[in-house]
Amino acid sequence: MNTNLHAHMEQTLVRLRESVRATAPILVDFLRDEVEKTGFHDVVFGLSGGIDSALVAYLAVEAFGAERVHPVIMPYRLSSAASLRDAQAITSDLGLKADLVEITPQIDAYFSRDPSASLLRRGNKMARERMSILFDHAAVYRALVLGTSNKTELLLGYGTQFGDLGSAVNALGDLYKSQVRALAEQLGVPAAILHKAPSADLWEEQTDEKELGFTYDEADVLLHHWVDRWLTRAEIEALGFAPELVEGVMRRVRLNHYKRVPPVIAKLSSRTIGIDFLYPRDWGM
Protein backbone atom coordinates (compact mmCIF):
# COMPACT_ATOMS: atom_id res chain seq x y z
CA MET A 1 0.00 0.00 0.00
CA ASN A 2 1.40 3.38 -0.86
CA THR A 3 2.04 5.94 1.89
CA ASN A 4 -0.65 8.34 0.75
CA LEU A 5 -3.31 5.66 0.75
CA HIS A 6 -2.13 4.42 4.12
CA ALA A 7 -2.43 7.88 5.65
CA HIS A 8 -5.79 8.40 4.01
CA MET A 9 -7.09 5.08 5.33
CA GLU A 10 -5.94 5.87 8.85
CA GLN A 11 -7.59 9.28 8.74
CA THR A 12 -10.88 7.90 7.42
CA LEU A 13 -10.93 5.06 9.95
CA VAL A 14 -10.35 7.50 12.80
CA ARG A 15 -13.30 9.55 11.54
CA LEU A 16 -15.51 6.47 11.18
CA ARG A 17 -14.64 5.32 14.67
CA GLU A 18 -15.17 8.73 16.24
CA SER A 19 -18.53 9.12 14.53
CA VAL A 20 -20.12 6.49 16.76
CA ARG A 21 -19.29 8.21 20.03
CA ALA A 22 -22.90 9.20 20.71
CA THR A 23 -24.62 6.30 18.97
CA ALA A 24 -25.12 3.80 21.79
CA PRO A 25 -28.10 5.53 23.48
CA ILE A 26 -29.88 5.82 20.13
CA LEU A 27 -29.39 2.13 19.39
CA VAL A 28 -30.56 1.21 22.87
CA ASP A 29 -33.72 3.31 22.39
CA PHE A 30 -34.14 1.87 18.89
CA LEU A 31 -34.06 -1.71 20.21
CA ARG A 32 -36.49 -0.97 23.01
CA ASP A 33 -38.86 0.94 20.75
CA GLU A 34 -38.89 -1.44 17.79
CA VAL A 35 -39.27 -4.51 20.02
CA GLU A 36 -41.80 -3.19 22.50
CA LYS A 37 -44.12 -1.62 19.97
CA THR A 38 -44.69 -5.07 18.50
CA GLY A 39 -45.99 -6.20 21.89
CA PHE A 40 -42.88 -8.27 22.65
CA HIS A 41 -40.70 -7.76 25.70
CA ASP A 42 -37.88 -10.23 25.25
CA VAL A 43 -35.16 -10.76 22.66
CA VAL A 44 -33.15 -13.73 21.48
CA PHE A 45 -29.99 -13.82 19.37
CA GLY A 46 -27.11 -16.07 18.50
CA LEU A 47 -24.02 -15.42 20.60
CA SER A 48 -20.96 -16.64 18.73
CA GLY A 49 -18.17 -15.11 20.77
CA GLY A 50 -17.44 -12.70 17.92
CA ILE A 51 -17.55 -8.95 18.15
CA ASP A 52 -20.88 -8.34 16.38
CA SER A 53 -23.02 -10.54 18.60
CA ALA A 54 -21.02 -9.34 21.61
CA LEU A 55 -22.01 -5.76 20.83
CA VAL A 56 -25.64 -6.83 20.39
CA ALA A 57 -25.50 -8.49 23.82
CA TYR A 58 -24.24 -5.31 25.51
CA LEU A 59 -26.79 -3.09 23.73
CA ALA A 60 -29.64 -5.52 24.45
CA VAL A 61 -28.83 -5.75 28.15
CA GLU A 62 -28.82 -1.98 28.36
CA ALA A 63 -32.16 -1.83 26.54
CA PHE A 64 -34.01 -4.66 28.27
CA GLY A 65 -32.07 -5.80 31.32
CA ALA A 66 -30.42 -9.23 31.51
CA GLU A 67 -33.57 -11.19 32.40
CA ARG A 68 -35.26 -10.27 29.12
CA VAL A 69 -32.24 -11.06 26.95
CA HIS A 70 -31.80 -14.67 25.78
CA PRO A 71 -28.57 -15.48 23.98
CA VAL A 72 -28.21 -18.87 22.36
CA ILE A 73 -24.76 -20.37 21.88
CA MET A 74 -24.79 -22.86 19.00
CA PRO A 75 -21.40 -24.47 18.45
CA TYR A 76 -20.57 -27.10 15.85
CA ARG A 77 -17.92 -29.70 16.66
CA LEU A 78 -15.34 -27.79 14.59
CA SER A 79 -16.12 -24.42 16.18
CA SER A 80 -13.11 -23.10 18.01
CA ALA A 81 -12.90 -23.54 21.75
CA ALA A 82 -11.94 -19.87 21.99
CA SER A 83 -15.31 -18.87 20.54
CA LEU A 84 -17.18 -20.72 23.25
CA ARG A 85 -14.91 -19.28 25.92
CA ASP A 86 -15.44 -15.75 24.60
CA ALA A 87 -19.21 -16.23 24.45
CA GLN A 88 -19.16 -17.37 28.06
CA ALA A 89 -17.01 -14.39 29.06
CA ILE A 90 -19.77 -12.15 27.70
CA THR A 91 -22.59 -13.94 29.48
CA SER A 92 -20.77 -13.90 32.79
CA ASP A 93 -19.80 -10.24 32.40
CA LEU A 94 -23.42 -9.27 31.68
CA GLY A 95 -25.12 -11.75 34.02
CA LEU A 96 -26.87 -13.44 31.11
CA LYS A 97 -28.28 -16.93 31.12
CA ALA A 98 -27.45 -18.48 27.76
CA ASP A 99 -28.88 -21.61 26.14
CA LEU A 100 -26.26 -23.94 24.73
CA VAL A 101 -27.51 -25.88 21.68
CA GLU A 102 -24.96 -28.02 19.85
CA ILE A 103 -25.79 -28.22 16.15
CA THR A 104 -23.39 -31.09 15.42
CA PRO A 105 -25.97 -33.97 15.47
CA GLN A 106 -28.33 -32.50 12.90
CA ILE A 107 -25.60 -31.07 10.65
CA ASP A 108 -23.64 -34.32 10.59
CA ALA A 109 -26.80 -36.39 10.11
CA TYR A 110 -27.76 -34.28 7.13
CA PHE A 111 -24.37 -34.41 5.44
CA SER A 112 -23.89 -38.13 6.12
CA ARG A 113 -25.96 -38.65 2.94
CA ASP A 114 -23.55 -36.42 1.01
CA PRO A 115 -20.11 -36.50 2.64
CA SER A 116 -18.47 -34.67 -0.27
CA ALA A 117 -20.48 -31.50 0.39
CA SER A 118 -18.36 -28.37 0.06
CA LEU A 119 -17.35 -26.14 2.94
CA LEU A 120 -19.61 -23.45 1.53
CA ARG A 121 -22.65 -25.72 1.59
CA ARG A 122 -21.80 -26.84 5.10
CA GLY A 123 -21.31 -23.28 6.29
CA ASN A 124 -24.61 -22.13 4.81
CA LYS A 125 -26.44 -25.10 6.26
CA MET A 126 -25.04 -24.33 9.71
CA ALA A 127 -26.06 -20.69 9.45
CA ARG A 128 -29.60 -21.70 8.49
CA GLU A 129 -29.74 -24.30 11.23
CA ARG A 130 -28.81 -21.62 13.75
CA MET A 131 -31.43 -19.28 12.35
CA SER A 132 -34.05 -22.00 12.68
CA ILE A 133 -33.04 -22.61 16.30
CA LEU A 134 -33.20 -18.91 17.09
CA PHE A 135 -36.71 -18.55 15.71
CA ASP A 136 -37.76 -21.62 17.68
CA HIS A 137 -36.29 -20.08 20.83
CA ALA A 138 -38.14 -16.89 19.97
CA ALA A 139 -41.36 -18.90 20.28
CA VAL A 140 -40.21 -20.38 23.60
CA TYR A 141 -39.40 -16.99 25.12
CA ARG A 142 -42.07 -15.06 23.23
CA ALA A 143 -39.23 -12.93 21.94
CA LEU A 144 -38.02 -11.24 18.78
CA VAL A 145 -34.82 -12.33 17.03
CA LEU A 146 -32.12 -9.66 16.94
CA GLY A 147 -29.83 -9.51 13.92
CA THR A 148 -26.08 -9.20 14.26
CA SER A 149 -25.05 -8.32 10.68
CA ASN A 150 -23.11 -5.10 10.27
CA LYS A 151 -23.14 -2.75 7.28
CA THR A 152 -19.87 -4.08 5.85
CA GLU A 153 -21.16 -7.66 5.83
CA LEU A 154 -24.56 -6.65 4.50
CA LEU A 155 -23.03 -4.67 1.66
CA LEU A 156 -20.49 -7.32 0.77
CA GLY A 157 -23.16 -10.00 1.01
CA TYR A 158 -20.89 -11.82 3.43
CA GLY A 159 -23.66 -13.72 5.13
CA THR A 160 -26.09 -16.54 4.47
CA GLN A 161 -29.48 -15.62 3.07
CA PHE A 162 -32.17 -16.87 5.46
CA GLY A 163 -29.32 -17.81 7.79
CA ASP A 164 -27.43 -15.25 9.83
CA LEU A 165 -29.07 -12.54 7.68
CA GLY A 166 -32.47 -13.56 9.07
CA SER A 167 -33.75 -11.49 11.98
CA ALA A 168 -36.58 -9.21 13.05
CA VAL A 169 -34.64 -6.18 14.25
CA ASN A 170 -31.04 -5.27 13.51
CA ALA A 171 -29.26 -2.58 15.50
CA LEU A 172 -25.91 -2.99 13.70
CA GLY A 173 -26.99 -2.77 10.07
CA ASP A 174 -25.83 0.83 9.57
CA LEU A 175 -22.44 0.42 11.26
CA TYR A 176 -19.29 -0.60 9.43
CA LYS A 177 -17.07 -3.22 11.00
CA SER A 178 -14.64 -0.59 12.29
CA GLN A 179 -17.54 1.26 13.88
CA VAL A 180 -18.81 -1.93 15.49
CA ARG A 181 -15.35 -2.38 16.96
CA ALA A 182 -15.25 1.21 18.28
CA LEU A 183 -18.68 0.94 19.82
CA ALA A 184 -17.91 -2.46 21.32
CA GLU A 185 -14.80 -1.05 22.93
CA GLN A 186 -16.78 1.89 24.28
CA LEU A 187 -19.37 -0.44 25.84
CA GLY A 188 -16.76 -2.59 27.54
CA VAL A 189 -16.70 -5.72 25.38
CA PRO A 190 -13.75 -7.83 26.65
CA ALA A 191 -10.41 -7.09 24.96
CA ALA A 192 -9.91 -10.69 23.77
CA ILE A 193 -13.02 -10.33 21.62
CA LEU A 194 -12.12 -6.87 20.36
CA HIS A 195 -8.74 -7.90 19.08
CA LYS A 196 -9.18 -11.36 17.57
CA ALA A 197 -9.45 -11.86 13.82
CA PRO A 198 -13.12 -11.83 12.72
CA SER A 199 -14.32 -15.26 11.66
CA ALA A 200 -17.59 -16.89 10.69
CA ASP A 201 -16.11 -19.90 12.50
CA LEU A 202 -17.78 -22.25 10.03
CA TRP A 203 -14.65 -24.31 9.63
CA GLU A 204 -11.25 -24.47 11.28
CA GLU A 205 -8.77 -21.68 10.63
CA GLN A 206 -11.37 -19.68 8.72
CA THR A 207 -11.07 -15.91 8.93
CA ASP A 208 -13.30 -13.41 7.15
CA GLU A 209 -10.43 -11.43 5.73
CA LYS A 210 -8.66 -14.52 4.35
CA GLU A 211 -11.86 -15.59 2.66
CA LEU A 212 -12.75 -12.13 1.32
CA GLY A 213 -9.26 -11.41 0.03
CA PHE A 214 -9.10 -7.92 1.56
CA THR A 215 -9.18 -6.43 5.04
CA TYR A 216 -12.21 -5.01 6.77
CA ASP A 217 -10.39 -1.71 7.08
CA GLU A 218 -9.96 -1.57 3.31
CA ALA A 219 -13.58 -2.55 2.74
CA ASP A 220 -14.88 -0.03 5.28
CA VAL A 221 -13.01 2.92 3.81
CA LEU A 222 -13.83 1.98 0.26
CA LEU A 223 -17.52 1.35 0.99
CA HIS A 224 -17.79 4.52 3.05
CA HIS A 225 -16.52 6.57 0.11
CA TRP A 226 -18.71 4.80 -2.38
CA VAL A 227 -21.94 4.34 -0.43
CA ASP A 228 -22.05 7.28 1.96
CA ARG A 229 -20.03 9.88 0.09
CA TRP A 230 -21.17 8.95 -3.44
CA LEU A 231 -17.60 8.96 -4.78
CA THR A 232 -17.20 7.45 -8.25
CA ARG A 233 -14.98 4.48 -9.01
CA ALA A 234 -12.45 6.81 -10.63
CA GLU A 235 -12.36 9.03 -7.56
CA ILE A 236 -11.85 6.03 -5.29
CA GLU A 237 -9.05 4.66 -7.47
CA ALA A 238 -7.45 8.10 -7.44
CA LEU A 239 -7.06 7.73 -3.67
CA GLY A 240 -4.66 4.87 -4.38
CA PHE A 241 -6.92 1.82 -4.10
CA ALA A 242 -5.95 -0.92 -6.54
CA PRO A 243 -8.49 -1.16 -9.38
CA GLU A 244 -8.84 -4.94 -8.79
CA LEU A 245 -9.74 -4.31 -5.15
CA VAL A 246 -12.27 -1.63 -6.07
CA GLU A 247 -13.81 -3.88 -8.72
CA GLY A 248 -13.82 -6.86 -6.34
CA VAL A 249 -15.66 -4.97 -3.61
CA MET A 250 -18.13 -3.28 -5.96
CA ARG A 251 -18.85 -6.55 -7.69
CA ARG A 252 -19.66 -8.27 -4.39
CA VAL A 253 -22.03 -5.46 -3.41
CA ARG A 254 -23.77 -5.66 -6.79
CA LEU A 255 -24.02 -9.45 -7.04
CA ASN A 256 -25.24 -9.84 -3.48
CA HIS A 257 -27.88 -7.15 -3.60
CA TYR A 258 -30.55 -9.86 -3.85
CA LYS A 259 -29.74 -10.85 -0.29
CA ARG A 260 -30.75 -7.40 0.94
CA VAL A 261 -34.21 -7.29 -0.64
CA PRO A 262 -37.32 -9.49 -0.42
CA PRO A 263 -37.80 -12.04 -3.22
CA VAL A 264 -38.88 -10.47 -6.49
CA ILE A 265 -42.56 -10.96 -7.29
CA ALA A 266 -44.12 -11.02 -10.76
CA LYS A 267 -46.46 -8.07 -11.01
CA LEU A 268 -49.88 -9.21 -12.19
CA SER A 269 -52.46 -7.28 -10.25
CA SER A 270 -52.96 -3.56 -9.76
CA ARG A 271 -51.43 -3.79 -6.30
CA THR A 272 -48.46 -6.01 -5.75
CA ILE A 273 -46.58 -6.80 -2.56
CA GLY A 274 -43.10 -5.31 -2.66
CA ILE A 275 -43.95 -3.03 -5.61
CA ASP A 276 -46.94 -0.79 -4.96
CA PHE A 277 -48.47 -2.17 -1.79
CA LEU A 278 -46.70 0.45 0.24
CA TYR A 279 -46.98 0.25 3.98
CA PRO A 280 -44.46 1.02 6.66
CA ARG A 281 -43.07 -1.97 8.50
CA ASP A 282 -44.36 -0.45 11.72
CA TRP A 283 -47.89 -0.59 10.30
CA GLY A 284 -50.39 -1.48 12.99
CA MET A 285 -47.83 -1.61 15.80
Binding site: S19, V20, R21, A22, T23, I26, D174, Q179
Partner: peptide, 11 residues
Protein backbone atom coordinates in the same frame (compact mmCIF):
# COMPACT_ATOMS: atom_id res chain seq x y z
CA UNK B 1 -35.14 12.19 11.21
CA UNK B 2 -31.66 12.19 12.75
CA UNK B 3 -28.45 11.08 11.12
CA UNK B 4 -26.59 10.18 14.26
CA UNK B 5 -23.11 9.38 13.00
CA UNK B 6 -21.18 12.51 13.76
CA UNK B 7 -19.64 11.74 17.11
CA UNK B 8 -21.38 14.53 18.97
CA UNK B 9 -24.13 14.07 21.52
CA UNK B 10 -26.52 15.75 19.09
CA UNK B 11 -27.16 14.35 15.64
Amino acid sequence: PGRALNGASDS
